[in-house]
């Protein structure tokens, strides 16, 4: 029935991230962490919504934000979320090389997002929108900067995981780590959906 050559493939469980108790604990624990992250971003959104019209002497949201730029970074993050789904699908099939390639694409897109966000912030500072300009600018940089820091952390984390899988291979210890990092990356994209809606688009509307 099963040829010895396929032994390894047959041993690879349907959901390798949940095949061990440690893996299951890791996934559940990570979801609890994400619940806390939702609270963290929720309070930052609350602060921003309360203060977003207090612009003092600085520029307003409608003057600052440029829709093409926001649409581009949104598209980048959305595509990177899709590529990390593809990485997990490859992981489930134990296609290590495909998984690593999708993860690398995800990391590159994460770097593109970060680069554009840094460019965006530098441009705002030149237009007189610094961290201490107004209550609006402080709450803006705190919220969007916190999200950017999460992207930077995710990029570093996934890069380290790529190196670890290269060194130690894909097994029941490394698979849950990759799975959890992909869940994190999707969460970052989900937070961005609210940021481009509440901060940028609602800022444009006024």
């Amino acid at each position: 029935m099963s040829a010895p050559a396929h032994h390894v493939d047959d041993q690879w469980p349907h959901e390798p991230e949940k095949a061990t108790l440690e893996g299951r604990n890791k996934v559940i624990g990570f979801w609890l962490f994400l619940g806390g992250e939702a609270v963290l971003f929720g309070t930052l959104f609350a602060t921003f919504l309360a203060l977003r019209n207090q612009i003092g002497d600085g520029p307003s949201a409608a003057e600052l934000f440029k829709l093409p730029m926001i649409a581009t970074v949104t598209a980048i993050l959305l595509v990177s979320s899709l590529t990390s789904v593809f990485a997990i699908q490859a992981m489930h099939r134990k296609e290590v090389k495909a998984m690593l390639n999708w993860l690398i694409v995800t990391v590159i897109l994460g770097f593109c997002f970060l680069g554009m966000e840094i460019y965006e912030f530098v441009e705002y500072v030149h237009e007189g929108h610094t961290f201490t300009t107004s209550a609006f600018s402080s709450s803006f940089y705190t919220l969007v900067g916190f999200h950017g820091a999460h992207v930077a952390f995710g990029v570093a984390w996934i890069s380290i995981l790529i190196a670890q899988v290269r060194k130690k291979g894909l097994n029941l210890v490394t698979a849950p780590k990759v799975y959890v990092s992909a869940i994190y990356w999707h969460f970052i994209d989900v937070v961005w959906v609210f940021i481009f809606t509440v901060v940028y688009l609602m800022g444009k509307v006024g």
Partner: peptide
Amino acid sequence: FMIGGVIIAFTAIVMSV
């Protein structure tokens, strides 16, 4: 976990607004 987090976050948003 997520609904719990969202309820607290939503409460914070409604309260501060």
